[in-house]
Design a protein around this nucleic acid. Structure first.
Lengths: 201, 201
DNA sequence: GGGTGCCTGATACAAAGCGCTACAATCGCG
DNA sequence: CGCGATTGTAGCGCTTTGTATCAGGCACCC
């Protein structure tokens, strides 16, 4: 599945939960975090709790078995109706250069260039954090989410990792690091990138 | 309902089907044709057929009664998650400059600029409160509403949080904080923003 | 017109959140 | 195996924010 997803383009995924190997919920969590692929969960687990968990994890809809094929079809259409066309590729920042807030990020060289032509080298951590933010502009992301998306791990109770990395990233890309405008803090929620992102080439 | 819809901004509608007067399905059909307002149908009609019809008519989701409140909440969140940004209130105001009462609010930098060019930095709480007010100019909002909209929580019996935040916000944006003109107090009801709001760029 | 009670504005304070620095652990690279 | 760069952890201190409290103002009543 991962191979196919990486290669081709898909509009929507219908996902079972109980499967050998990786769990459907796990897949859903993984995908909804990194991609913007609409997901409909379709499973024998029909309890309220199962549905709630499925939806909270990032599924767009949840249909318990046994189901009416026509209902599945109707729900697929309903989900697709809401999904904007660009959404399928909005998260995939496959372009080489990304423009945002007066800066340009070279996704190959991991280099930021500002309007004056100054170049700053990003470390791998900088780059991953920035990429995650760029994939969801103008969206508040919690430290938990950011840590999961950048490092793939859960946050400890006193985890200040993301704060630190944000601080380091700001020093590299903000014009005035004391009053950041690109990456703003949303107190007790997380951080958000305040700029429109444009993919070039 | 139509009056309210025409006047204010709404992120999502939860709609019953069997109501006196106009039918829920009819409303749904009407709205999904003209507006792009996400709709969740919530009704006692739980047959496959009913669900399919509801979804095909334009509903984004369909939840039969009796329902688990947490599931409704999860489905609301799921629908909002995939709703395009411009439809939500935060999205409608993001990345813009808002003019009101001689001031300009930069919604990216969270900075207020007055006619003389003086700049004031808003805190997150300031900004959220102001944003909520700007979204509903010349409307009286109760403390309860404001607290719900800004912090998403309910007010305790002796909750003076909003009073305090209004006070702090006034100090930053009112020319004469002792006699406020922009944010006026409506005794025993709440507060209201007294200015027309103009969205720029 | 003056008292009375409720409502609001402002201040003070405590707690929580966050930015930043310093340092240790880890990684990458030869 | 060693060195430098990078990254996670700890902790200090400032800012922000919720709560308590007091004082002033408005409405209402007589």
């Amino acid at each position: 599945m991962d191979e196919k997803l990486a290669k081709g383009h898909y509009d929507l995924m219908v996902l079972d939960v109980m499967m050998p190997g990786e769990d459907g919920l796990s897949i859903c969590k993984r995908l909804s975090a990194e991609k913007r692929l609409p997901i409909i969960m379709l499973t024998a687990l029909g309890q309220d709790q199962d549905r709630i968990v499925g939806l909270e994890i990032g599924a767009d809809d949840y249909l318990p078995k046994p189901f009416n094929p026509r209902e599945l079809l109707a729900r697929i259409k309903a989900v697709l109706r809401r999904a904007p066309e660009e959404m399928s590729e909005a998260g995939a920042l496959s372009g080489r250069i990304l423009r945002f807030g007066g800066l340009a990020l070279d996704t190959d060289a991991h280099v930021i260039t500002d309007r004056d032509g100054n170049r700053v080298q990003l470390t791998t951590a900088d780059f991953r954090l920035l990429t995650v933010l760029l994939a969801r502009p103008r969206t508040v992301l919690s430290r938990e989410q950011l840590l999961d998306l950048t490092a793939g791990r859960a946050a400890g109770p006193l985890d200040r990792t993301i704060d630190n990395q944000i601080s380091r990233l700001r020093r590299k890309i903000e014009t005035d690091a004391l009053r950041p405008t690109l990456i703003t803090t949303v107190r007790s929620h997380g951080y958000s990138l305040n700029a429109d992102v444009e993919v070039i080439a």
